[in-house]
Design a protein around this nucleic acid. Structure first.
Lengths: 137, 137
DNA sequence: TCCTTATCGATAACCATTATCAATAATTAT
DNA sequence: ATAATTATTGATAATGGTTATCGATAAGGA
């Protein structure tokens, strides 16, 4: 439980703008390295610590989502549309699954468990089309 | 895509049995360290590499679930009942959310996206009761 | 323009996990 | 039972993603 969250003035920096710009509406589920490479290509002076720091800030402020999809590598999602993810257990391919049709009764859960749900991440795991075929063969 | 999955004979070992026993029906969402400590208390000869190896095998065989709940630390779940998880963004407390009432149309998604869903992990994030109160104050 | 200090860039430190390898023990064949 | 094969173990080194540190820089207010 965080009690003394000291007030800090947040500054806008070129680096932060650049990183957000690179992530905005990116549907490729990039890793930190992917993001760093893109950012660094646009500005050679940006270091990777800065990318880490700003990605974390963007996640904290809800502008970007951190995906827990892959145990080995953290991915980020700048796509703000409501959707979930499927990851193939064989080839690790990630597929976006739009929100529609999935009914998560957050209000009822909030009430039943006396919690306040701010976000819901759904991860489907299994076999993609190509890997199913490869196994069947 | 894995093609040449060579056939390997799997052996039953005391260590593997012990680790599964420690994890079975454990609802505390233990970390690797938690598990290692419990196992090591029961058998001083078991090394942590062995715990890592066997946990991974148990996850692969579906006997235990690896939870992607916390970005900083991997947790495991030996509770085989259908349920999802809520984690408090402030104090990192984990609460089990039973399956009932959440409708995930896996069959329809399988059909629509031509995939085969084997597992569905849902992670709710937000504020637990105690941390909500602390913030409101 | 000056002042305060959040942020930056470079790099060291941290730590969870995996790789390596000789020794051991589980399983199969004799 | 005994021997042979080899998956697994235990110890430890290596890996790699992320964070901490720190002097320098620059954002934003006075």
């Amino acid at each position: 439980m965080v009690i003394d969250k000291e007030v800090v003035f947040i500054r806008n920096t070129k680096q932060k703008e650049l990183i957000l710009q690179v992530l905005s509406n990116d549907k490729s589920h990039p890793t930190m390295k992917d993001i760093y490479n893109k950012v660094h290509a646009l500005d050679k002076n940006v270091g990777q610590a800065t990318v880490y720091r700003n990605i974390n800030k963007l996640v904290d402020s809800g502008k970007v989502k951190r995906l827990s999809i892959d145990k080995d590598i953290t991915r980020y999602d700048g796509d703000k549309s409501n959707h979930y993810h499927f990851i193939c257990n064989s080839c690790n391919k990630v597929i976006d699954i739009p929100y529609k049709g999935i009914n998560v009764p957050a209000d009822k859960i909030n009430h039943d468990y006396n919690i306040q749900i701010d976000d819901c991440e759904i991860i489907f795991r299994g076999q993609c089309n190509e890997c199913q075929s490869a196994i069947k063969r």
